[in-house]
Design a protein around this nucleic acid. Structure first.
Lengths: 209, 209
DNA sequence: CAAAAAATTAATCATTTGATTAAATCTTTT
DNA sequence: AAAAGATTTAATCAAATGATTAATTTTTTG
């Protein structure tokens, strides 16, 4: 087999390369159905391309998935790192910025957390290790500030609760929408409200004894 | 095809019926791998039974899955209903009892939330509607008490946050354990601590303005 | 006990699925 | 413009998979 000539990939703004079309389709389909339920034919169809091109460009379904998965993990875990690691901001400010940034991103990618977390669960040995979350949870400036304010507690409790308040609504979205008869618009409106509420709650949480 | 004689199912305590063996194996395998990644052969092997028995007793993989899924949804959503609907307890007491009961159950079934929520996401039209969570979220005594204490806010915010604090750690378990270098024992110890912390936090959350 | 019914098994089917191949088309280089 | 190289296509393969069948064994019933 002749591998595709990557050097030629001078992307003309107008139309995407075949490789990129496949990746985009893969993102869409993997995201929607998960790895196991996705057929390579689904991806080819979504991309409007011949099935064989998938193997021509990416060798296998698994290799293609790994690329998509790494992107998604980066998106899910990478976005708050710079905020929580900023040495120049207060704890309160970090909570505000992180809630705002994260909820904004998740509103545009509501399926991201459930996708990543369930694929990690289906293959923990493969993916859990590649999560950069470790640094965040162990030696971020955010954690340092939590320790200072509450030296009596395991800071992981607060980190977990903070993320829970932000991320959980998106994971439970189908259930919440169904149970509360929420339109997608109403759901998004609530998430907007939480951008301001969560920092407030986090502060209250940190004080509570 | 002759359907199995259900009338004969007088379960002798000692050994389980074939039907129950299949169901148990199905619970185990579906739970571990999800619907799409599960092979009927995996279930038959897990049960130590001939593959054809699966179709003999349950007609199809999908029918068997539906039974397991309903059980799991009942377990996930059913357990707090009586607590949150008890007209005789205070809001604080409900928070205590619900946190304790739910964390206790989830510690023994840590994969339950991610399993149910991701299968609902893969088939929302089919399952989301069958969730009994609607009543809880709309007209439980718990929600009524929240409304009384905070008439200025959408009670769904507090309900969501309360559930988030309880359930999210189990959903994020693989990531948290990996990122914080937690042993399974240490994880469980933290969840034990949260039984007392969450009611405290919930109270603080309710007050925060 | 013997006939009938139920449960179990091994073998097989028809589809689906990830992947490959060889030929055809398009693009770049010489 | 010919040759070489890259990309795309239709056809096909082998393995996996959900399901069925027909025969066999076990259990229940009269």
């Amino acid at each position: 087999m002749v591998l595709p000539n990557m050097a030629k990939k001078k992307v003309v703004a107008a139309d995407k390369t075949t490789e990129e079309k496949i990746k985009e389709a893969a993102r869409t389909v993997f995201m929607k159905k998960g790895y196991a339920a996705t057929r390579t034919r689904d991806i080819a169809e979504e991309a409007g391309l011949n099935l064989a091109l998938l193997n021509y460009y990416f060798r296998s379904k698994e290799k293609l998935f790994e690329i998509v998965m790494m992107e998604k993990m980066q998106k899910l875990f990478g976005i708050i790192a710079p905020i929580l690691n900023d040495n120049t901001t207060t704890l309160e400010k970090k909570a505000e910025l992180a809630a705002d940034t994260y909820i904004h991103m998740l509103s545009e990618n509501p399926d991201l957390p459930i996708f990543v977390l369930s694929e990690i669960r289906n293959n923990p040995e493969r993916f859990a290790s590649k999560v950069q979350a470790g640094k965040l949870i162990q030696d971020s400036h955010f954690v340092k500030q939590i320790k200072e304010k509450r030296p009596d507690m395991n800071p992981l409790h607060f980190m977990t609760s903070f993320l829970a308040l932000i991320v959980f609504p998106f994971i439970a979205k189908p259930v919440l929408q169904d149970a509360a008869n929420l339109s997608p618009k109403a759901f998004n409106a609530m998430m907007e409200e939480r951008k301001a509420l969560i920092p407030l709650w986090f502060k209250a949480l940190m004080k509570a004894k």
